[in-house]
Nucleic acid binder design. Structure first.
Lengths: 324, 324
DNA sequence: TTGAAAGCGCTAACAT
DNA sequence: ATGTTAGCGCTTTCAA
């Protein structure tokens, strides 16, 4: 028994009874198939009117059970409190809602085993498809879902071994242009603090870095390419180490916003001033960037576009596979 | 028909057939009521084993339809891309998951009519309760749900006219202590740029501001208390105006992080330096605060705690009303 | 043009 | 200790 004050629920059956017609007729009208089944104009009108008067809303649980379609998308994010993901998520929600889908949100806490659990949970809940920004340690579980033909679009972090649609900003171009900018300003020894090395965004960003240097005939000093995580810690520690090793470099390319903050902290602690002593470019624009102690140049990512494209892609897939 | 490669679904019925027992028996065992119904150890064991072997997972749609309980919470947030809400949301998701609930996420885009639509959508989807950070323009729709005894907990923004559980940080204490801090350092003319004046968090923050001043016997100059929105624009414009009016003040209390950024922008444009020319305290701590051009002092909010308490409150309510 | 009936997967009251 | 049955609300095939 529901706790809500019990009004008799507005169901197809109730409407049918009131109108002295069958449930099927009501169903046909209300799912817009009145014409198709050649329901008489009179009946159709009566049903429509009563449904609106009684504020009939179909029960999605019943529909889902019957149709194996829930108008629901499972969204799995490694950390929804990361502003980048939060912005992507917002656009996903907006876009999905406009297409008549709801979002079930799962935070995998950057933990592959929770990612797997989330997939299972969402599968049990009969979502129509997945939008996932994978943790990225392993990919077997994703492969498995791909193999079973689940509509699934990967966001941001990609794992090249899986063949699934994938949406992210142009990571290559981002660093490519940023590093070129530095080169044009005369920098030749440019350090780079990267994120998780296995992830495609990171690989692409590094590729942009290499490409730019190469075009300027600058030999790449591998000892200036450090790091393996997108977090603040990594930026901090790796920058410290770079400075300790007395590597000579005049600029740093930080491959995420958190890395960038860590780098700033390290530089500050070591008494370096930006841009007086060193230049710094970060990745992933944020509202607050322009207010940083030092207005750090950043490569903007378009979260809205990422979210929007991913959602549209997924919904198209869902609908092609399981038309309404 | 589902698009997924069709394996015969693992249902109670399938298990029952295989084991030559009735569906009810299987159901009883699998919902942990074996003892209660005194199912024989042998039968129980067989069911359990097959269920695990076949990886049986009950269908939540069917359960929901039958039980009027979906183990689902509707979360309505005015802007999930706001880092404050994103962090609250994360904790909510984590906490809810641990209690066996899923989150359906709706972003009301700071729009009351979308907030109403979200409520209706979630109600139709038979969520067990709501967590909502209301837009706050009007409250009739919330009243209505409260009246119908829906489990619902308000987060962050409160509307005192509704009597519903409400969770936020201690807004009063936040500004109270911040302003006292300024007073202790000799400031006497302290401007305050506030957020949406109708909202309780804002009112509480303003109350803290007034209280602190009062305790220091500082008469309150109402012309130093300006603003009416939590956004960046408001901080920017109101600060500009304060400066233009040549009001004398030596410190500014900004009642949100976005207001604070707007204030920084305005001060910077006017050539004021923090803290040389003026002191500034913001509300709502952020990772990036310590990296701001000027390390602005801020009042921290504990998003984790807010999310955690709100979720626990709601789930307790749900379970008291509709025990498992 | 409409109705009857079956069934999606599950639970619970009522047998026995 | 377990089975039978009805039903949650909906869609759809088959029949009329």
């Amino acid at each position: 028994m529901s706790a809500r004050k019990a009004k008799p629920p507005v169901t197809l059956k109730a409407i049918a009874r009131q109108l002295q017609v069958s449930e099927s007729t009501v169903s046909r009208v209300l799912s817009g198939n009145g014409k198709k089944y050649r329901i008489s104009a009179k009946t159709e009108k009566a049903v429509l009117e009563l449904a609106r008067k009684w504020r009939f809303v179909p029960n999605p649980l019943a529909q889902g059970l019957r149709l194996n379609r829930t108008q629901t998308i499972g969204l799995i994010i490694p950390d929804i409190s990361n502003p980048f993901f939060a912005r992507v998520a917002r656009q996903i929600e907006v876009e999905a809602r406009q297409a008549g889908f709801s979002i079930i949100l799962c935070d995998s806490e950057e933990d592959t085993s929770l990612e797997i659990k989330s997939l299972e949970l969402l599968e049990a809940r009969k979502v129509d498809g997945f939008l996932i920004a994978p943790v990225g340690e392993t990919t077997d579980h994703l492969q498995e879902y791909a193999r079973r033909d689940w509509p699934m679009v990967i966001v941001d972090r990609y794992l090249p071994e899986i063949k699934l649609p994938y949406v992210s900003s142009d990571n290559f171009k981002g660093t490519y242009q940023a590093v070129k900018y530095l080169l044009e300003r005369g920098h030749r020894r440019i350090a780079c603090v990267q994120g998780r090395t296995a992830s495609l965004p990171n690989r692409e960003r590094v590729r942009g870095y290499r490409q730019a240097l190469q075009e300027y005939q600058v030999a790449i000093d591998e000892s200036l390419l450090v790091g393996n995580d997108f977090g603040l810690e990594n930026g901090y520690i790796k920058t410290k180490l770079l400075l300790r090793q007395e590597k000579k470099f005049t600029a740093i390319m930080a491959l995420s916003n958190l890395i960038c903050l860590g780098t700033i902290r390290a530089l500050t602690e070591e008494g370096m001033e930006i841009p007086r002593d060193i230049s710094l470019i970060g990745f992933d624009d944020q509202v607050y960037c322009e207010y940083l102690r030092t207005p750090v140049t950043t490569v903007a990512q378009n979260e809205k576009e990422i979210g929007s494209i991913a959602t549209k892609l997924l919904i198209e897939w869902i609908q092609s596979v399981n038309p309404v």
